[in-house]
Write a protein that binds this DNA or RNA. Structure first.
Lengths: 126, 126
DNA sequence: CTAGGACTTGGAGTGGACTCCAACGCAAAC
DNA sequence: GTTTGCGTTGGAGTCCACTCCAAGTCCTAG
């Protein structure tokens, strides 16, 4: 559930963040550990409290991960973001290269989907 | 290179089969071991000789694998093929279910590709 | 005939990305 | 204030699909 510090800055426990981001709690901790997520804010007793900003970033990570970007390259992207605005050109290059990879993957899937359809048609004709 | 038993039935060494199928030699041996490929014909001294029929089957496996079918399900499909023509309806069901999965994957990729494009546009606008 | 590359085996090892564990502390509901 | 369950840690374990290894045999070009 939502845990509010004040009216304008909602925060989320790791469980709630998992539910909202689509990552498991373990994956969220793992991503923080390897530097994919900046150190998350903590309560006085050490529990994580994710912000909407964290969730937005997690959305980007989810997109990159689900389109097949390796963790190492996501980490590189995270580093670029941390380094500041002067890395934006490189971020664009990285994303463009990834988009090309996604396009190729989709084209390959489309071709192979047709092959499967052909196989199905063949089986239907027997 | 091609190793012909006679004019009508070319066979291929594992190296040549690897080159033609796009699998590594190790993967071909592994697939045979776990039953994805029927026992391959051998020379008197035990070396494998793949046929055009084997290559065709490998093409199907490559298509299924590259579209994300788990090895276990490919093995199930291979079993159905071995069991004979009466399993054709089930093979059709399996392939149709897989095609649905591929379609979903493509739709997901397309949506996420758009997200990436949006991100690129945003970075370009900064 | 010989050199060098291709092939054989069973089994162990790898890489990527998590996923689980134990033993504990903290929180929210009643 | 106690129970129920969510959260913490470091490190070990898992899963999938290969991939590599060693020690040996086979094949073919010259």
């Amino acid at each position: 559930m939502l845990v509010a510090d004040n009216a304008t800055a909602p925060t989320y426990t790791i469980g709630e963040c998992a539910r909202r981001s689509g990552f498991t709690m373990d994956t969220l901790r793992y991503y923080e550990r390897i530097g994919l997520i900046d150190d998350v804010r903590r309560t006085a007793t050490g529990q994580r409290r994710f912000t909407d900003g964290d969730l937005e970033w997690l959305g980007t990570l989810k997109c990159l991960r689900d389109t097949g970007m390796p963790v190492e390259q996501m980490a590189r992207f995270a580093d670029l973001v941390r380094e500041g605005d002067h890395t934006i050109p490189e971020r664009i290059r990285l994303l463009e290269a990834h988009r090309v990879a996604v396009d190729e993957r989709m084209a390959d899937l489309a071709a192979k989907r047709d092959y499967i359809s052909g196989k199905i048609d063949y089986y239907r004709s027997v």
